[in-house]
């Protein structure tokens, strides 16, 4: 569970243009989804430039065919958040593989109408995560890798 107070978040987000709005949303989301935590890290843009940005990193719980899975995700917030949508990825562990599809590309980037049609204040992180949970519950973005590295059991003769 992430233990980050509002003062620490404000300090981390000092270059964010709408810092108070952003802090409020993050505080709200991490209180509801306790397996997500705010992390500052370098985000590399398509043109190769990089920038220190806040992400919410961790897992979101989905229910798929009656079982709960904790899907690893990273939601990057631009410094213009919430007036631009987050940039969202699934982050498969070494035991997982990405299942590309309508909502996921080979890099794990997440595409959703909710992100495409993002508009503050109707859109927010909490709503986004709820949409992800529904969409991923129908079409999981990652699956477990087959354990091909394990030695084959010898067959009984």
């Amino acid at each position: 569970m992430a233990v980050v107070n509002e003062g620490a978040l404000k300090k981390m987000l000092k270059q964010y243009k709408y810092r108070d709005l952003t802090v409020r949303e993050i505080t709200n989301v991490i209180s509801q989804y306790k397996d997500l935590k705010p992390v500052m890290d370098a985000y590399v843009f398509n043109d190769g430039s990089s920038r220190d940005l806040m992400s919410l990193t961790g897992t979101i719980p989905i229910s798929y065919r009656g079982n709960v899975y904790n899907i690893p995700v990273c939601l990057w917030l631009l410094d213009t958040y919430p007036f631009n949508p987050p940039i969202c990825f699934v982050k498969p562990t070494s035991a997982m593989m990405i299942k590309t599809g309508k909502h996921i590309d080979a890099n794990g980037k997440i595409y959703l109408p909710y992100l495409h049609e993002w508009k503050h204040p109707q859109s927010d992180l909490y709503g986004l995560i709820q949409v992800m949970i529904v969409v991923f519950g129908e079409e999981p973005p990652v699956f477990s890798r087959p354990t091909i590295a394990a030695p084959l059991p010898s067959l009984p003769s």
């Binding site: 569970m1 961790g58 897992t59 904790n70 899907i71 562990t93 699956f143």
Partner: peptide
Amino acid sequence: LNGGAVPSAPPTYT
């Protein structure tokens, strides 16, 4: 301790 949930995924899609 600040581990969070262990990531998990459905069994391999076939």
